[in-house]
Amino acid sequence: MIEISLAALFIVFIALLFLLVSIFFYLFVKKYFNNQTRMEIFQLKEDYQLDMFHYLQTGNGEWLNSSLNQEQLIALMELLTEYSNVLDGPVVEDRIREFADKYLTSFIKKELKKGRWSLRMNALYAIEGLYMKQLIPSVHALYKKRRTTIAEKSQIVKLLARFHDPQVPQYLKDIHEDLSNFSLLSIVSNLEEKTLDELIENFNELSKKLQYVVIDTIGKKQLTHHHMLLHRLLSEDDEELRIRSLKAYANSGLPIDTNLLAAFFESDNWQVRMMAAKVTGVERIERFKLQLIYLLSDREYIVRSEAAKSILRFRDGEGILTMVVDQTKDLFAKDMAIEWLEKERNNHSY
């Protein structure tokens, strides 16, 4: 019995040994060749660097052969992406795009069709970074494939929004429930103003998730012509909508209807009170100075902090906080006032 087991064990041992040695040699050889390739690419980038810079400055791009191998293409793509991250301006953008269109189109097209997710993603990043509008049809094709993951779709919609593609609103409606707020915000704020206006025209038909993002975008991009929408939303039943529109007022500095704002200081929701304090500070609404002093004693730390910050935005803000420090019996309010006075004197907004 032991004899048989021994033989079996020996076979297992040999098999495992073979596996181990194979992994070792695979890694050894792969590492060696990878290092060689990386070194070659590094060298190529060094060689191309000056010519590439010269091309981006002057437009003279006659320094390359038309038949390029894989390493040369990777070196060019990496170099171009690095320049694209540091150089700006329409002329440079055009030159980057022209160069990429001429030399990299078929390479990136192939990469888009690769089986591995990371390579397809890299290709999408390259298309965006190198402004390769020429590849938009391939990008649409990738979007429609069944195996395309949500991360890819998110990146596709993002880059299409940047290229002002007309399909974006439809894609957004299709997949927005699967996208994070962060991605949605980035996509919507990249939309052309005309497209964004169309989206806002049909505001009521949008899902709640998209509505929130649209309001945030109005505030961030200071789209003042949509003030009627913000005004209307302040009276909505949905509290989140009210908070977001207050935030949009605070971000855009649009004048708010003070009669509507008055009620928010009494809200049960601390986020509403905090936003009310913020808007009052941003717009320096004299009428609500007293409310801000009152909010210095709010039960929520963040509201007290925002109130103190807002008071300091008024010309006599320092005087008000000093008065609070001298007169108040509420230690919370006093501490907060002292903290912000100190920040003001040290010139730290943080």
Partner: peptide, 27 residues
């Protein structure tokens, strides 16, 4: 004795394969 030795070698190789796989993952 042979039995013990073989088991010992097996555990040695198995542990090593696991470590090497981790190195592969690192790569």
């Amino acid at each position: 004795f042979e039995y013990a030795l073989l088991f010992f070698l097996l555990s040695l190789i198995y542990g090593s394969i696991y470590s090497m796989s981790a190195v592969l993952l690192e790569e």
